[in-house]
């Protein structure tokens, strides 16, 4: 069974750890302490023919790496070269979150964009043009409500597709 390495990145409190727990089933405390994800958390899951190794990276506002946590995140993406980088975005806070998403895309890493907390965005009356956004970013886009497990199947499908494609092209 082939292992795919999946890295979760995103702004602090975008829902990375919630998504991490939903994906890997790890029971962990998800709180609101700034910089709480300093430890490297790895979880596993099998999906289809793959074994997913999911890493929950520390929250970052930017890859310019102003803080130690941001440095860990940047270095992981650059040095460890995960098979897919999942950028977790707080859909209720697009403007600031997309900044990091674009930086990851500019690195050229295989990326899936997750608009998390879609329920919160909807509750605020935000209507997001998902087709337009995916088109502008030129990246696959998935919407989730990680807290309720919504959208996880689609995300798994998407990230394995992106990661597998990447692996194939490496050996093509």
């Amino acid at each position: 069974m082939k292992t795919l390495r999946v890295a979760l990145v995103g702004n602090p409190n975008a829902g990375k750890s919630t998504l991490f727990n939903a994906l890997t089933g790890a029971q962990q405390h998800v709180g609101n302490w700034p910089g709480k994800t300093v430890a490297k958390k790895v979880g596993f899951r099998t999906y289809g023919d793959y074994r997913l190794e999911v890493v929950d990276l520390p929250g970052a506002y930017s890859l310019s790496a102003y803080t130690f946590e941001e440095l860990i995140t940047r270095n992981y993406i650059l040095d460890e070269r995960p098979d897919v980088v999942v950028v977790v975005i707080d859909a209720a806070n697009l403007e600031r979150n997309l900044y990091l998403a674009v930086q990851v895309l500019e690195l050229g890493a295989p990326t899936v964009i997750v608009l998390n907390m879609m329920d919160a965005a909807t509750a605020r009356g935000y209507r997001i043009d998902l087709d337009g956004l995916a088109e502008a970013l030129q990246a696959p886009l998935v919407t989730t409500v990680a807290r309720q497990g919504q959208g996880l199947d689609r995300l798994l499908e998407m990230l394995t597709a992106v990661a597998a494609q990447q692996i194939d092209s490496d050996y093509a």
């Binding site: 506002y61 310019s64 600031r96």
Partner: peptide, 10 residues
């Protein structure tokens, strides 16, 4: 200024 913009202080 760059850092403040990254934090969403636009």
């Amino acid at each position: 200024a760059h850092r403040l913009l990254e934090l969403g202080l636009t």
